[in-house]
C-alpha cells in the first residue's frame, strides 16, 4: 500500500483511523469538541497555518495531505498551555508531536521547515554518538542560515564549550545504542505499517 499517496474519501473515517493507529496519542483526536481553547492558548498561534483544533477537524474531514504537510505541528514548543486548558483533556502537545513524527516518516514535511530541520539534526547528532553534542548541534543549526550570522550568534551566546567541536565524546556502548535505535525504528515502522 502506497501510504503516502493515498487520498481518503472526504469525511470518511479512513484518515482518522490511520491517525488513531499510527500517530502517538492519535486515538484522542476524535474526542475534540472544537471549542478552540487550544488555538487561543498557543503562544505560537499567530505564526502557524492551522490550529490544533483545526488540524483535528481536518483529520476528521480526511484532509490527509494538508494535515501532514502542515507546518502547525512543527511549531509546538511544548508549553502545554493547550493540554492544561483543554476541556476534554486531550494530550494536544503529544498529538502534535506525534503528527510531526508521522509526517517526517512519510517524508511529507514542508520543505525548509525549521523545526523539522532542527529535529533532524538533533536526531542525527544523537543517533551518531548516543548523546547530544550540543555544540555541533547548535553550530549546525546556526550555520544553516549562513556562516556570518552563525558565528555572531555563537560568539554572543558564549555558552558552549568550544572544545566539544573536536569530536566530542560518545556514550560507552555506542554500537549497542545504535543497534537499539535501529531496532526501535524497525518495530515502530512495522507498527505503523511503513514496512513489511
Amino acid at each position: 500500500m502506497a501510504t503516502n499517496l493515498q487520498t481518503p474519501a472526504p469525511y470518511h473515517n479512513n484518515f482518522l483511523r490511520e491517525v488513531e493507529e499510527r500517530v502517538e496519542e492519535g486515538e484522542w483526536v476524535k474526542m475534540c469538541m472544537q471549542c478552540g481553547v487550544c488555538a487561543g492558548s498557543c503562544p505560537f498561534g499567530p505564526h502557524w497555518e492551522h490550529s490544533p483544533q483545526k488540524i483535528f477537524m481536518m483529520i476528521r474531514a480526511g484532509k490527509r495531505e494538508e494535515v501532514l504537510t502542515s507546518d502547525a505541528m512543527w511549531m509546538c514548543t511544548s508549553c502545554y498551555n493547550c493540554v492544561v486548558r483543554c476541556p476534554r483533556q486531550l494530550p494536544i502537545t503529544h498529538i502534535m508531536h506525534g503528527l510531526a513524527s508521522y509526517a517526517h516518516r512519510l517524508g511529507l514535511v514542508p520543505k525548509g521547515q525549521p523545526t523539522h530541520e532542527f529535529a533532524t539534526m538533533f536526531w542525527n547528532n544523537l543517533a551518531k554518538k548516543g548523546r547530544v553534542n550540543e555544540l555541533k548541534l547548535t553550530l549546525a543549526l546556526y550555520f544553516k542560515d549562513g556562516l556570518v550570522a552563525g558565528i555572531k550568534t555563537v560568539v554572543l551566546a558564549k555558552r558552549l564549550n568550544p572544545m566539544e567541536i573536536f569530536g566530542g565524546h560518545a556514550i560507552k556502548d555506542l554500537k549497542g545504542f545504535q543497534a537499539i535505535i535501529a531496532k526501535a525504528r524497525e518495530i515502530e515502522d512495522k507498527k505503523q505499517g511503513l514496512t513489511g
Binding site: Q34, C35, G36, V37, C38, A39, G40, S41, G45, P46, H50, S51, Q53, K54, N81, R85, P87
Partner: peptide, 29 residues
C-alpha cells in the same frame, strides 16, 4: 463568537480585561 476563550489578560491602564482566543469558525485569532 464561536470560541472558548483561552485566557484573559489585563489592560492595566484602564482595568479592561483583554480576551484572547480564536474564533473557530474559519480560524480568526
Amino acid at each position: 463568537v464561536k470560541s472558548k476563550v483561552a485566557r484573559i489578560a489585563l489592560n492595566e491602564a484602564n482595568n479592561n480585561p483583554i480576551l484572547h482566543g480564536v474564533d473557530t469558525e474559519g480560524y480568526h485569532r
